[in-house]
C-alpha cells in the first residue's frame, strides 16, 4: 500500500472496519455516517443502516447533510415515524450497534454535546443530545468516532449528555443497563478500547506514522497504552477509492442543491 492518505481518511476507514455485515446500526450524522457507508460499500454489503429520522435499511448514494435528507428515504427498505423508531426499534432492543460522534468525551467514554460551562450560563451552547441518551443505553454496543484533540478529549465533562461507562468499572450494570456501552473509540491518530475491568479508554492501536507523544499531546488526561499495542493497518486501495468517491459525490450533490 503506497497511497498517501490523510488522518481523517484513516479515521473513517478504521471506523468502518469496526462494523460487520450482520450489524443493525443506528447511524449518527457526520463522521459516523461516512464510516457506516464505507463499510456498506466495502466489506459489509448487507449491513442494515438506520437513521433516527425513521429510515431503515437505507443505502444512500451520497452522504446526507442532515439526518433526514430525502436520499435516505428514497433508498430505504422502509420508513417509519419517529415515535415508532425510538419505541419499537431502538427501545425494543433491535439495534446491535450505535455509532456516535460527539463534541467532548472523557476517559470513560461519556459524551457531551450539550454545553461547555454551566448549564444555566453556558460559555458555549451546543445543539444537545438528540437521540444520543437512549442510543447509548439501548443499542447492544456503541462505537464512537471523533478526532483526537485537547478540546475534545477532556479530563472533566461539564455535562454528561449520554452515558458511556459513567464512573468506570461496573457503573452501567449498577444502573440496570444490560447493554455493553462504548466498546471502541476511533480517532484520527489511534483506536481506543475500554479496559476490561476499569473501563478506562486505553490506546490499543496506533495509526501509521503517529507517535505516542502525539497522542498524549492531543489528549486532556494522562492516556494509557495497552501492552499488546498494534499498528492500525493502512487503508487499502479499495477503501480509499470508495471513501474518496462517496466524498466527491457528496460534495457535488450538496453544492448543487
Amino acid at each position: 500500500m503506497s497511497s498517501e492518505f490523510t488522518p481523517t481518511e484513516m479515521m473513517t476507514i478504521a471506523a468502518s472496519r469496526a462494523l460487520t455485515n450482520d450489524d443493525v446500526c443506528f447511524v449518527g450524522i457526520g463522521a459516523p455516517s461516512a464510516a457506516c457507508n464505507v463499510a456498506r460499500l466495502t466489506h459489509a454489503p448487507d449491513i442494515t443502516l438506520i437513521y433516527e429520522s425513521g429510515t431503515i435499511g437505507t443505502r444512500p448514494d451520497v452522504l446526507p447533510l442532515s439526518i433526514g435528507d430525502g436520499e435516505l428515504c428514497d433508498t430505504a427498505q422502509f420508513t417509519v415515524s419517529v415515535p415508532e423508531m425510538f419505541r419499537y426499534w431502538l427501545q425494543g432492543g433491535r439495534i446491535t450497534t450505535g455509532f456516535l460522534g460527539g463534541a467532548q468525551i472523557d476517559r470513560f467514554a461519556n459524551l457531551n454535546t450539550t454545553v461547555v460551562g454551566e448549564y444555566d450560563h453556558p460559555k458555549v451552547r451546543l445543539p444537545g443530545g438528540g437521540g444520543a441518551p437512549e442510543i447509548a443505553s439501548n443499542c447492544g454496543q456503541i462505537f464512537i468516532t471523533m478526532a483526537l484533540t485537547n478540546r475534545g478529549f477532556v479530563d472533566h465533562l461539564d455535562f454528561i449528555t449520554s452515558m458511556g461507562h459513567g464512573e468506570g468499572g461496573d457503573h452501567r450494570a449498577r444502573l440496570g443497563m444490560k447493554t455493553k456501552g462504548p466498546s471502541r473509540v476511533i480517532t484520527d491518530l489511534c483506536i481506543l478500547e475500554p479496559d476490561p475491568v476499569t473501563k478506562e479508554l486505553t490506546v490499543v492501536s496506533i495509526h501509521q506514522g503517529v507517535s505516542r507523544k502525539q497522542i498524549q499531546d492531543n489528549c486532556g488526561w494522562p492516556i494509557k497504552f495497552a501492552t499488546d499495542l498494534i499498528e492500525t493497518p493502512a487503508p487499502t486501495d479499495t477503501e480509499l477509492l470508495v471513501l474518496r468517491d462517496i466524498n466527491a459525490r457528496t460534495k457535488k450533490a450538496h453544492e448543487a442543491a
Binding site: P83, R87, T114, E134, S137, T161, M163, H171, G176, M177
Partner: peptide, 21 residues
C-alpha cells in the same frame, strides 16, 4: 407527542439513564 395524541397526561420510557438532563 404520542402521549399527547393519546390523551394521556405523561409518557414513560426507558431513558435518560446516567445522563445529566
Amino acid at each position: 407527542y404520542e402521549a399527547g395524541a393519546a390523551n394521556l397526561p405523561f409518557a414513560t420510557l426507558r431513558g435518560y439513564i446516567g445522563a445529566d438532563l
